[in-house]
Design a protein around this nucleic acid. Structure first.
Lengths: 346, 346
DNA sequence: TTGAAAGCGCTACCAT
DNA sequence: ATGGTAGCGCTTTCAA
């Protein structure tokens, strides 16, 4: 039977209120009294019961704000499902979730949206935004003001965020490269690869390419990277750059898509008329409905995923527990698994 | 602001106690009064608050019993980590977990161990046991006595279990077959496959083989299955049967391990001296430490996993919520993902 | 600086 | 059959 605040109070010869002040560092306790209470707490191993806590703070529920650049990007659907599932599970324990979604990567808009969550008295934040100095500086100021922040899907380097929950992009690229080399081990021609990336400004995209190359080099498979084009995560642009590149390099037998624009790329491959019949291997990342359909049709060989549902679910649960445990246990980074999806395991 | 039992009572012109009786079907309420209360509940959308519930039932915490045939099988380590993580998270909300582990598959021992959990007043059970009539009948009698049961990892067909949380073995086999065929698409020799299974009595093992074959057939790759041997999940026996089979079929170029005994099989392959240098492909299931090491050494090409951690975590969380929500929302089966692991994404 | 008491939502118990 | 009340563990407020 776990020890309660009442037992601690009795043992220390004080009232529950005083113990509460010590436990939550509310001050106004004579040092020697505080010391005695702390001793009792250590001896008994007292930890405040979460259910009791939840009940009393019912009028000001723990409101977690969540910012995502998710509009117009189907990848985030599963993340949001995870967020909502956690909210659903914890609503009765005093959690409420405020999700702010925007389109694109205009820094000012990101900061503005995040600030609006702060203004609505969110007691903590879950954010996925661009890793640039302006944003990081802003985030650090938010953290300094007492609002803990968890980064999700994309980390913010050099901030004091509580933890990062998301994928290791470098490893994702490595897995893609290794699997490709396994698939090509008996192949007679050298791999001739076209890479379509989102932006060379985005670390995650670059990491995926770097890991991919490392892995190909290590495995000793013969390959040639004919071009790396940017599509800025735009389907139309993805179509155009892919088609141009394929016309310029008609010997291409593998297309590596390190970011969004997957549908555009696949359409371009089809329209190029090059080596149909499964000779052009296509590798992508993540698994929104559009990608899923392309895998089912055999237009993509495999896609590398990152547990988006768990990214959402986990971030909420972790942050909520962090609060309820008086911010005592620090949160550790959580790297979601690199999940290989083919037709059969979607 | 969610509606409380007090508000419902006031609106219906009765006391909280009466509302409680209606909500929890404790009887002793005049039908017309019950009807009026039910109306108010529907209008207001009242649901009992979980935190309040937890607090009052603190003296008789929800004790979940868990039975696993896990002794001596490293696969279960991660499942147990998941179970413990959930317990840790929910302990303050009144959850306690009683785990009973045994070695092997002697039916009487399974039933006895499960019964001991019932005897210790577990209010619900999580079990993984053998799917045979005797056990199913026993489980159904437990369920009839009011103790809900969740099956984990292995389902019990024809029981009234609340839900199954685990893998679809058939799909697992399908993924294995499909991936092998992708890997072998440029191969010059036909696949000559030796299958080492656990037991032809165990449905999961058979399903993995059936799915594997379906997949190979569909993909049109040329193959021959030279033999299917049983190792009864025993390393020594696995070594012996594999070595014998390889000697009898020295043209074998692929070994498919559908259950445990992985280490023994790999040792036999090495000792056979056949075609070393990566020519014998090895496919396994699950990813305990031993398998992990073999993948790192390149002795296994890939292994097909089933989210063991989540099997543990999810089963506890689901069952706990089921209780706290007055058993209202029925639980739906949860098929964990088929996760392909290669050297890079372990 | 400290204590006493009220109250969060719920259930259990006792009285009617 | 129904109502009233106490109490679960905690925080908050008011009084001392």
């Amino acid at each position: 039977m776990p020890v309660t605040i009442r037992q601690v109070a009795r043992a220390a010869g004080v009232s529950r209120g005083t113990v509460d002040r010590v436990v939550n560092n509310r001050g106004k306790v004579r040092p020697e009294v505080a010391e005695r209470i702390r001793e009792v707490i250590n001896e008994t191993g007292y930890t405040p019961n979460k259910a009791g806590k939840v009940l009393v703070t019912r009028k000001r529920p723990v409101k977690i704000g969540c910012f995502l650049p998710s509009l117009g990007n189907a990848f985030w659907d599963e993340v949001i499902m995870g967020l909502r599932a956690a909210e659903d599970e914890l609503a009765d324990f005093g959690l409420s979730l405020e999700i702010r979604e925007i389109h694109g990567y205009v820094i000012g808009e990101h900061i503005e949206a995040i600030q609006s969550l702060v203004d609505e008295n969110c007691s903590s934040l879950i954010v996925s935004t661009v890793d640039v100095p302006d944003v990081c500086e802003y985030i650090n100021s938010v953290i300094s003001s007492g609002i803990p922040v968890v980064t999700i899907n994309t980390d913010l380097t050099g901030t004091n965020r509580l933890c990062y929950i998301g994928s290791n992009y470098l490893t994702g690229g490595t897995v893609a490269g290794r699997l490709l080399s396994m698939l090509s081990i008996y192949s007679e021609f050298p791999l001739t690869i076209l890479t379509v990336t989102g932006s060379t400004m985005i670390k995650g995209h670059n990491d995926r390419i770097a890991g991919f190359l490392t892995s190909l080099n290590e495995s000793g498979v013969e390959y040639r990277m004919v071009s790396v084009c940017e599509c800025l995560d735009d389907e139309e642009r993805a179509y155009d750059v892919t088609l141009d590149a394929l016309r310029e390099h008609p010997d291409t037998n593998c297309v590596y898509i390190s970011a969004a624009g997957v549908t555009g790329v696949c359409r371009a491959i089809a329209d190029s008329g090059l080596r149909r019949g499964g000779r052009i291997k296509v590798i992508s990342f993540d698994n929104p409905e559009t990608t899923r359909a392309l895998i089912q049709k055999g237009e993509i060989d495999f896609t590398i995923c990152q547990e988006p549902y768990r990214q959402g679910y986990q971030s909420v649960v972790s942050l909520f527990n962090y609060f309820l445990e008086n911010k005592k246990r620090p949160l550790s980074d959580c790297f979601t698994e690199i999940v290989i999806k083919i037709k059969e395991n979607q």
